[in-house]
Design a protein around this nucleic acid. Structure first.
Lengths: 196, 196, 196, 196
DNA sequence: GACTAAACGAGACGGTACGTCGAGTCTTTGT
DNA sequence: ACAAAGACTCGACGTACCGTCTCGTTTAGTC
């Protein structure tokens, strides 16, 4: 009862964990969930297959863990200024994350067959709703300040904002950049201001 | 010189083909692409494994064929009336197809890991662009009639129309029904009428 | 010179039969019984697989027929002269047949796994005993003439004659030629003359 | 700590190896090389198919190994006494081995289609020449003692000895027992003593 | 010299085994 | 005492032949 007491949370095991999760995400990005192989992940992480199985129950569990890692990170919520600026900044941050390598990989994984795994479905739910919810205070503040009509549902505005971004990314495959983000923000505001 | 348009040997082989493609789609719906197994498809179709391999090169080829079948079907394009009615009808038909069992299965498959197969990616492309393009004449007609501002880009209107539908179906998983369709149509028109 | 006209069902069927049996023997020689494939035989005979199965029940039946063809042929039995000459001539004819391409193939086939097929085992039995028996009159005649001791068992002499030939061909794989044949004949006579 | 004296890497893997090779030889005896199936061997050994393929490249490799096992075993060489007794004892030991179940199986396999596999051909060569060579010193000793004529070629005597045994076993299928062995030994000596 | 029946070409089919790969489990070993 | 290594069971992969079957198409022998 001595040598493990030396390192409580850090130590060698943590390095293995990081290496494996990193390898898993990389494989996810390169070959997708269907073709992701525990053996390939282990090889890539420089670790033996059984070492992976000692920590994770199976392929699904490993992927859940790898995705969770990148999903619960906090995203900066800008916060001050006219609603036009705030939404534009938010839209751009969404686009930036989703088009960066890690974001692309996570998004693809969350929409892949992995989503049939209940835990991944949970992660997916958490991921999207949490991110969208984080922008709702911006809208609420604008309503309070009278920039948007009273009675505006913040959730609706945010949905309207992200919808065209995801459409291009996921459905049509069209390129997505800041221009797309700006247009999305503008349209979301137009819709919010159109009396209901 | 009567029914030759369909297939030359309409006999027994066609039944096998239909049974296997049907089984493939059903498996796709139930277990997804990742877990789809040629042997399970064969079993389900009441056919031997080697019979499947005689006609299709591999799992991917089989899935491509099964999806293609349901993708190139024609969708009714309503066509007359005020743009509000036309777009609402179109939105509802899109929702109806995507929420019916077959539609759900095809959509899920097109967004799954199967999309890494180049041929499936092609099918996906064909599928979405063809369907969206089919609604563009409606918008063009409305522009010609003065119901929508001159200079309106039909493609933009259609994208705005379907974006919230796909958002709910694919990203947030919220329920989608005629109400959703109607709101999507209304918002698309609002955006089109907001001067650029 | 259309000698096939003599048969009842002359025509085309006989050509097919000959082509297939020939191909079967050739395959037997080249790849052996284990690797002999009905499809390869058919291909080689320029005939369709089903045509083979129409006439022969299965692979074994086909091989039986192909071997039988070459087994029931008559071998010239020399017959006059001192026993030394007769046996030497017989030994040489045995060697000649067994070292010619067809003989090699038939011998190999009769000793291969094909011999597990009861009909092939029968053919094998017929083949060896018939050929050996054909030489027995030579010995009997020599006994009658007093060249060999009375009471000599012709079968024993013939067995002693062929034993070293088969040993080299089948067991040790040593080369076999007329020298071997001559030595075998000489030794058989020595043994016959050594009182029992 | 010397309980595993039997094998270098003792333990569990050796048990699998033995079980599989035993099963392979048994199958060889029962159904022959042509009908020998890796799956059947695995079943019989109580082992999964892939376990067999992990250690042996294919069917041929497995058979080579199974045969080798029984081929390189040492055979007792009697050694003292008049040449008549020595050769008779040797002949009987040859007959005993070849008529025992294992011997029959090995012999049959060495003469079957398996012999087309180069490695099996090598084993066959090793097998027969090694066993025959082992008897040559007996003859050489007899020559030295003056029991057989000077200049007698030991190899020739041994060949003459075994030839009738193999003839019966392999060619004519006649029963082989000690009587056969004794006659073979006697005849070999007669031939050796007939001046050349 | 046309007609009919057998034989043939073509190829799909259910099946068995091939040899391969990966998933997950269990045992052995080294330290 | 425990974790790395690796051997094992299991199931599916995609392939080659087996032997069966059903279609059309020659082609031979008969009328």
């Amino acid at each position: 009862m001595d040598e493990p007491a030396a390192r409580r949370p850090p130590g060698r095991g943590a390095r293995v964990r990081a290496a494996v999760l990193g390898a898993a995400l990389a494989e996810l990005a390169e070959v997708g969930y269907d073709a992701l192989t525990v053996e390939a992940v282990a090889r890539r992480a420089g670790v033996h297959k059984t070492t992976v199985y000692r920590r994770w129950a199976d392929r699904a569990d490993l992927v859940v863990d790898a995705l969770t890692e990148h999903v619960d990170l906090d995203v900066a919520v800008p916060a001050a200024g006219p609603i036009e600026d705030d939404l534009r900044a938010y839209a751009r941050s969404v686009v930036a994350w989703l088009t960066a390598p890690t974001g692309r990989a996570v998004l693809a994984a969350l929409l892949s067959d992995a989503a049939r795994v209940p835990e991944v479905a949970e992660v997916k739910q958490r991921f999207f709703t949490a991110r969208m919810r984080r922008a709702e205070p911006l809208v609420a503040r604008a309503v309070a300040r009278g920039e948007l009509p009273a009675g505006t549902e913040p959730g609706d505005v945010v949905r309207a904002l992200v919808a065209p971004i995801y459409l291009r990314l996921v459905i049509t495959g069209e390129p997505v950049d800041d221009t797309t983000a700006d247009a999305a923000a503008r349209d979301a505001i137009v819709l919010a201001r159109s009396a209901r």
